[in-house]
Design a protein around this nucleic acid. Structure first.
Length: 1148
RNA sequence: GCGGGCGUGGCGAAACUGGCAGACGCACCAGACUUAGAAUCUGGCGCUUAACGGCAUGUGGGUUCGAGUCCCUCCGCCCGCACCA
């Protein structure tokens, strides 16, 4: 046992001698218990007070617990919450857990431990850590996303999404029923997507077909989609969950895979998500990130026809046997031809009327009459727009069944159908023509177009450069690639497509510079010049953006340029820049290719000489006039993949009803929404958290009794991590409600989040979905606002200060690395102190120098252990910061406690081992984690809170350095001691009337603290408190009149000590219920001001003058002063500038 | 490549609307109390100069009586997006 001289004990064993000593441990424990017992921060929704909602981003309770970086935002929000309470706001300041998620599941897979169990443990630990810091959360409102009482409502919102579509006319989400009504009432059949050609006229569609059509509109829908598949995690990931081609969690490779997926139609909200950014007070960087993510671009679509009557050489048999208008089934062609001739002769009156009105492209499109398609004959057809017009007369009335089959088959071929009765055509032909025109003007879906889909539609933001288009490029996934490829290129194209499709996202992204592509052998006709241009496929064109096809304008697009250069395609300049810089300055590539909006069109026929902007307008109107395409807005954003092939998430409340069609194709049946009253669909138990042997998601392992209504299969994928966090803020308003996700009353009172604090890493993920769901819930009338959070602050990241140690090997690095890292085991361990290692690394030490140093420190015997060779290799690794004091490594301790450093020699400098330093992300793997509990134990929660704020501006990232905390600790002790000066702290005691000087200090502090909290400048608040306490200490002032408001001011920052002092001042109720002190301008005002007097802007001296003086009086005083004369050197001042209360500047 | 942000002592930073650059704190130095350390207190602390003074907010220029702050040029760092036509 170590003995200490009488009365002296080390700090950490300090026992307070005086009762008045600042004993933060007791104080903090006392008040934390008091708050919990008295429910001091309980929040009622019924209140006449104004509301204030301050929210922290939902934490995911990870297994590693909180480090000092996490609470930064929580402390800031807690300060605001407490501050607002003191202003008599009714404050909602809740906390809960985003408790579904991948890490718990990964852990479950490794250990077999149920994720619910580990999640509960983690939550418990989080709660303990949070409680130690003294937050004013209303814990009665806590929510957990993995709680069925919570996810019942997540599922409920999903059902709402499933049962809604986005109506572009009203520009909002509506019930899917309104769409069905539309389909029923309109003559036009739903436009089937290329992947869902099961559709026909609504009433005659079967269940499956209806379901498929509606899937194209539902806001939550199932579709075959290219997804980010992560084999290591066994699940798909949303775009924002993939960074640099690897998964954000875990960093595993991600591949592209086509599979059926649940998605949310966030793209329907793209425009509103973009536009409404202007209405919210979020940081510019986040808004900009969202704008980029949405990626709006204006341009035009443009259709390129393929070359007509292609020679066999160009087209060949593989490209399609029939020419454009021969759409009929070959086998029965002859028969049909006869039949159609017959029909034409015997056409009805209505058909004749209509023919006169549509023939000769009168409606802008070529329409054919009695044309055979497949096995059927259409009354009228526009092949270009794939529209069939039927006029129902007596002939067809008894053929209903035949018609139904026909409609379905035609729809499968991609045709839409519009029907009229004889009567309609005869009595209101104008109206009929209008309807036909409307249907013709609708854009075709992807891949459709003239001649059975063999025209290519491109999207371009620069239609003005169309005359410079010298080739077309299709994405390798584009469905036309296969169709148009000529036989002699088939092999090459197939190989190329195979290569491109099998590259991972990562590969694609890492060699973006590499130009790859393949000519298809086919040619398109330039819509304006009629020139023949080659069609290529290349992976620089993305399938998912625009139409998956581009026109190559190598002279004015760098990617097209690279492609053209690489494959020797022609380059045609069509823009003359206004400023010659790009041409003259540019060398090589730049001279040939420039991308500018500042120029005039050349070599461009009818747009020659126009400015780019005007040219764009002109050419779009021309494109529209000629029916080649139209002005269009495109978004980079894709729909959000919503299903995860994982266990630990909300089950998607969908079940499947078997049907014949699906059974034949091996499908799942018709997806149906679980009835609202059957929610929640509880996450079933499974034996293992892995996919099944057949590759089904883990939920397929649930017992065979896990079926909807006892017989229907449930959907087996679960929701992604961001589902719960997209709406959780609403649940806090009414967390116990089992009738609604939130009551109208609660949401009408609390409304938006007033202040939202969290990390900027959520810019394009959570914060986007959060806004999307809010807008949706607004559309369907559930909530009265369209943005979830008015103000957002992104706290900076607190980085760790890592410590590095340097291991020396007498081997060459190359040799070493070749043999692999596991070989390190067999080398004796030798570490070099920082400055020695540095010198070895920059080759200023020879092996001989090291030998000398080794011998000097360890003696000759060391050489038998470390064989000094000519090769040196240094490997550095992080070392746990708990073994390091400043930058000095505690060698004894690390050798004892860390087996990696047993039997290790440390080559020292000046008798010490100095570590290298590096600032990097605080994480367990870097061994640089600082734990908040440790800080609270050592210095107290109040000190920890204030120090976190003192570090710097909230938004700024900064490294954690525990050293500085003593300054704040000293301040708190000084504050405490200030109260010891009070002779008698009773409310009416003597010596409580403050003097002018003290009042001035107080009121300056009130002003500054109030202003700084309002602008979230918490670091300067802490400085202000320090200045205030220093000044009061200097005055030896401890008047109740001063201390009382001071305690209130500091209570949001250091609540425990404030409560204790508040009690010492004689109060029995919590300081939470006090009122914020009022700033009195009179009391804070100075009488005089020491004017800095400068000459030509350089300050020379100060002169103390009354503030009551006017400009002229100040000038007079300054001119008259002795000092001024000295600096004037006898010259006359040219001019004197006086800013009252600020400065005097004399111009000489 | 595009977009956003930022460059101030040995360190974290302050200076909000153009008006005394470096407040407040850390570290450091000196002193007091101590056998010593810890704690506490006092003083010093941008660079340069013996001093008067001079020079200093990434670089160079501009606007202004006056610039860390506004404008332009270049350099460097951080973050986000990235063959998005």
């Amino acid at each position: 046992m170590k003995l200490y001289p009488q009365g002296r004990v080390p700090f950490h064993k300090f026992v307070p001698r005086k009762q008045m000593e600042y004993n933060f441990k007791d104080i903090e424990k006392k008040w934390q218990q008091y708050w919990a017992k008295n429910k001091t921060f309980h929040t009622e929704t019924h209140s006449s007070k104004p509301k204030y909602y301050v929210l922290d981003m939902f934490p995911y309770p990870s297994g590693t617990g909180l480090h000092v970086g996490h609470p930064l935002g929580y402390i800031a929000s807690d300060i605001v919450a407490r501050y607002k309470r003191l202003h008599e706001f009714n404050v909602l300041h809740p906390m809960g857990y985003d408790s579904f998620g991948l890490p718990a599941e990964q852990y479950a897979i490794q250990t077999g431990q149920h994720p619910a169990v580990t999640t509960e443990q983690n939550i418990k630990r989080y709660r303990e850590q949070l409680d130690k810091i003294g937050f004013s959360f209303d814990w009665d409102r806590q929510v957990k996303t993995s709680d069925p009482k919570f996810y019942k409502w997540t599922q409920w919102i999903f059902l709402k999404l499933f049962n809604s579509w986005y109506n572009p006319e009203t520009d909002k989400a509506e019930s899917i029923d309104t769409l069905i009504e539309k389909f029923k009432s309109e003559r036009l059949t739903p436009n089937p997507s290329p992947k869902e050609r099961g559709a026909g006229s609504w009433d005659i569609m079967n269940e499956k077909e209806k379901s498929n059509v509606l899937m194209n509109y539902r806001l939550a829908y199932l579709s075959e989609a290219w997804v980010n598949w992560c084999p290591a995690l066994g699940t798909v990931l949303a775009n924002d969950e993939v960074k640099d081609g690897v998964s954000e969690r875990g960093g595993y490779p991600v591949e592209r895979k086509l599979m059926p997926q649940w998605s949310l139609r966030i793209t329907a909200y793209a425009e509103r998500l973009l536009k409404d950014l202007d209405t919210i007070d979020w940081s510019e960087s986040i808004k900009e990130a969202q704008r980029n993510w949405i990626g709006r671009s204006e341009g035009s679509s443009l259709t390129f026809r393929l070359t007509p009557n292609p020679s066999p050489k160009e087209r060949g048999t593989a490209a399609g046997k029939n020419s454009g208008y021969e759409t009929a089934d070959k086998l029965i062609w002859a028969e049909l031809k006869e039949f159609s001739r017959e029909n034409r002769k015997t056409s009805t009156e209505a058909e004749a009327i209509l023919w006169e009105r549509v023939r000769d492209s009168k409606l802008g499109y070529k329409i054919r009459r009695q044309h055979a398609i497949g096995q059927f004959i259409a009354d009228f057809v526009c092949l270009e727009k794939k529209l069939i017009i039927e006029v129902d007369g007596e002939i067809h009335s008894e053929q209903k069944e035949y018609d139904e089959t026909r409609t379905a088959i035609l729809a499968k071929a991609g045709y839409r159908l519009i029907r009229f009765t004889n009567d309609e055509v005869i009595t209101k032909a104008d109206w009929v023509c209008d309807e036909i025109k409307k249907a013709l003007d609708l854009p075709l879906s992807f891949g459709e177009g003239e001649r059975g889909g063999e025209a290519i539609e491109v999207f371009t933001t620069r239609p003005d450069t169309v005359f410079g288009a010298t080739f077309l490029t299709l994405a390798p996934e584009h469905e036309l690639v296969e169709k148009i490829t000529t036989p002699e290129y088939k092999k090459a194209v197939d190989e190329y497509v195979h290569y491109a499709k099998n590259r991972t996202e990562r590969e694609r992204q890492t060699d973006v510079k590499k130009v790859t592509g393949q000519f298809t052998g086919a040619y398109a006709i330039h819509p304006f010049t009629e020139e023949k241009i080659p069609i290529w496929t290349g992976e620089y064109v993305l399938a998912g953006y625009g139409t998956g096809a581009v026109m190559g304008v190598p002279a004015h697009d760098t990617r097209d340029f690279a492609f053209a250069k690489h494959f020797g395609l022609p380059i045609k300049k069509v823009i003359e820049p206004n400023s010659p810089s790009p041409l003259e300055k540019g060398q090589g590539d730049e001279a040939e290719c420039f991308d500018t909006y500042d120029g005039k069109c050349i070599n461009s026929d009818f747009i020659n000489g126009l400015d780019v902007k005007d040219a764009i307008k002109k050419i779009i109107s021309e494109i529209e006039k000629r029916g080649l395409g139209k002005g269009q807005v495109n978004y980079r954003m894709r729909d959000a993949i919503f299903g995860r092939q994982r266990y630990w998430g909300e089950p998607i409340p969908i079940y499947y009803v078997p049907d014949e069609a699906s059974a034949k194709s091996g499908g799942n049946g018709i997806p149906k929404a679980v009835d609202e009253k059957d929610l929640p669909v509880i996450l079933p138990e499974v034996d293992k958290f892995l996919p099944t042997e057949t590759g089904e998601p883990p939920l397929a392992r649930a017992s065979s009794t896990w079926k909807y209504k006892g017989k229907y299969e449930y959907e087996k994928t679960t929701m992604p991590g961001w589902a719960g966090s997209s709406w959780y803020y609403l649940r806090y308003m009414d967390p116990q409600n089992d009738k609604e996700f939130v009551s109208k009353e609660a949401v009408n009172y609390w409304k938006q989040v007033d202040l939202y604090i969290g990390g900027s890493e959520h810019a394009t993920g959570h914060l986007m979905y959060f806004r999307f769901w809010t807008k949706f819930l607004y559309d369907i009338g559930c909530i009265p606002f369209t943005e979830p959070a008015q103000k957002l602050i992104n706290q900076g990241m607190i980085q760790g200060e890592s410590r590095l140690v340097y291991r020396l090997f007498f081997r060459s690095g190359k040799d070493f690395l070749n043999r692999g890292i596991e070989n390190t085991e067999k080398y004796p361990k030798l570490y070099l102190s920082y400055n020695i290692a540095k010198r070895v690394l920059n080759n200023s030490y020879s092996p001989n120098d090291l030998r000398e140093m080794l011998v000097k420190q360890f003696g000759e015997s060391i050489l038998s252990k470390h064989i000094v060779t000519d090769s040196l290799f240094v490997l550095w690794t992080n070392v746990d910061i708990k073994f390091v004091n400043g930058s000095i490594l505690d060698i004894d301790r690390i050798s004892r406690e860390d087996s990696n450093f047993s039997n290790t020699d440390f080559l020292l400098e000046n008798g010490l081992y100095i570590c290298g330093e590096e600032v990097e992300k605080m994480s367990k793997s870097k061994l640089n984690v600082v734990n908040p509990d440790e800080m609270c134990d050592k210095y107290g929660a109040d000190c920890f809170r204030m120090y976190e704020m003192f570090l710097g501006p909230l938004e700024q990232s900064k490294p954690w350095n525990t050293n500085g905390i003593t300054g704040v600790f000293n301040f708190l002790k000084k504050l405490w001691r200030l109260f010891d000066l009070t002779p008698n702290p009773s409310p009416e005691g003597e010596g409580n009337t403050a003097g002018k000087a003290e009042l001035k200090i107080l009121h300056k502090t009130i002003k500054k603290i109030t202003e700084d909290i309002e602008r979230y400048s918490f670091n300067t608040c802490v400085s202000t408190f320090m200045i205030c306490v220093n000044e009061l200490t200097d005055l030896k002032s401890a008047k109740k009149e001063i201390l009382e408001p001071l305690v209130i001011l500091i209570s949001p920052f250091a609540p425990h000590i404030a409560e204790e002092l508040w009690q010492k001042l004689g109060y029995t109720e919590s300081v939470t219920f006090a009122r914020w002190p009022k700033y009195d301008r009179q009391l804070a005002a100075d009488d005089t001001f020491a004017y800095p007097v400068s000459f030509n802007g350089k300050t020379k001296f100060n002169i103390e003058l009354p503030l009551s003086l006017t400009k002229e009086e100040v000038e007079k005083q300054v001119i008259l002063s002795e000092e001024t004369k000295k600096f004037l050197h006898g010259n006359q001042p040219k001019k004197v500038i006086v800013v009252p209360g600020r400065i005097v500047n004399v111009v000489v």
